[in-house]
Simulated scan of single mutants.
Amino acid sequence: MGTYYAPLAGLIPQNFSDPIQCGKYGIIPRKWDVSIFDWAELGSKHKMQFPFTAGDIRLKHCNLEISLAAESVDDARRMLFPLHVMMYAQGVHPFSVQFMSSHSINEYAGINSRKSSYTIDSLPEGLRTGISSATACVEMWEAPYTSGSVSRREGLARALTPSAFMQAVEDVERWTALRGQYPVCSFIERVLTSSPVVPDAGQSLLHIWTGLEALFPKVQSEVSFRLALYLAQMQAPLGDRQEFFQRAKRSYGDRSKVAHGGIIKAKNNQDPWMEAWTILTHTVRAILHRRSIPKEEELIQELLVAADARS
């Protein structure tokens, strides 16, 4: 069992300054800069699958990294994907995984200066002890998938709190079990990680709706009404079905407009992309809460039972 690290761009730590470990996952705030001389050392004497200049650029906007206790880097890649999606379900702003490595940023920062007694004194005290090229071999691999966001989305959290991270880790086990039972969960994962990097907001919204529609493949008629109704009923254990129904119906109208060559615009200061994204992430929360993906017939039965109970 080893530990692998994935630097994240686009998020900042909130309410913690020391690493937090939760099962096989950890979150580590970045403490030190990695100089261009450190990168040159890594590029010449260690194992990197990309140019060290690319590493320098990618790391500039990283304030956090995820650690993963795994048997191999391939195992770590598999573990990272569902955690990424569960963080989105917690309302975290879309972020990007820059690469994966065998050591933490805080370990290889200062690696060039530590190789010589003449330069080590120039380092801050906290960097004077640690790995060097003589004592460790740092390996770095390309990011396992494309992620991130092409624009800032108001209303989503760039600050990652310990509670949001720990909830995401807790949800991973439940989601992984659901993914084994419902193959559509894997498709939703891909939609969540890929749609924020689609440059055109309308096409990205259309992509989000492919994930929502995949939940109910039998719907062929009265599509707008029925999808909105089913999505709203999915939320029954969590919130206001009537409001969710109206939001989903309006968002499907945006989806149809894009699909027919139209251009979507904000209405009443509401971002259409954010509406679709929120509907999808809230649907993931509902699936987690239910521990299942109900079929259309099951949702209709729930509605009828609820109606009978009120009468």
Score class of each variant (00 low, 15 high):
267 K>P: 00
77 R>K: 15
124 P>T: 02
55 G>M: 11
82 P>F: 12
110 G>C: 06
136 A>D: 13
54 A>H: 06
162 P>L: 05
296 E>G: 01
249 K>T: 01
98 Q>K: 12
221 S>Q: 02
61 H>K: 07
38 D>H: 09
67 S>Y: 07
134 A>W: 05
105 I>T: 08
281 T>I: 08
25 Y>Q: 10
74 D>L: 09
71 E>Q: 14
235 Q>Y: 02
166 M>I: 05
126 G>K: 04
234 M>P: 01
65 E>N: 07
78 R>A: 14
136 A>N: 08
30 R>P: 00
290 R>I: 10
151 S>T: 14
197 V>L: 09
154 E>Y: 10
128 R>F: 01
263 I>H: 11
194 S>H: 10
1 M>F: 10
193 T>V: 14
68 L>S: 12
231 L>Y: 00
286 A>Y: 01
165 F>Y: 08
146 T>W: 08
282 H>R: 07
152 R>I: 14
66 I>F: 12
132 S>M: 05
226 R>A: 04
155 G>T: 13
72 S>W: 14
248 A>C: 04
148 G>F: 09
279 I>S: 03
142 E>D: 15
78 R>L: 09
47 K>Q: 13
72 S>M: 14
130 G>H: 05
38 D>V: 05
253 G>P: 00
151 S>G: 04
201 A>H: 00
281 T>P: 01
49 Q>L: 05
192 L>P: 03
7 P>R: 06
104 S>H: 02
292 S>L: 08
223 V>M: 02
109 A>K: 01
127 L>W: 01
227 L>D: 01
123 L>G: 03
184 V>E: 08
292 S>E: 14
263 I>E: 13
130 G>A: 06
27 I>M: 01
2 G>R: 14
268 N>H: 13
208 I>S: 00
149 S>T: 15
297 E>R: 04
75 D>V: 04
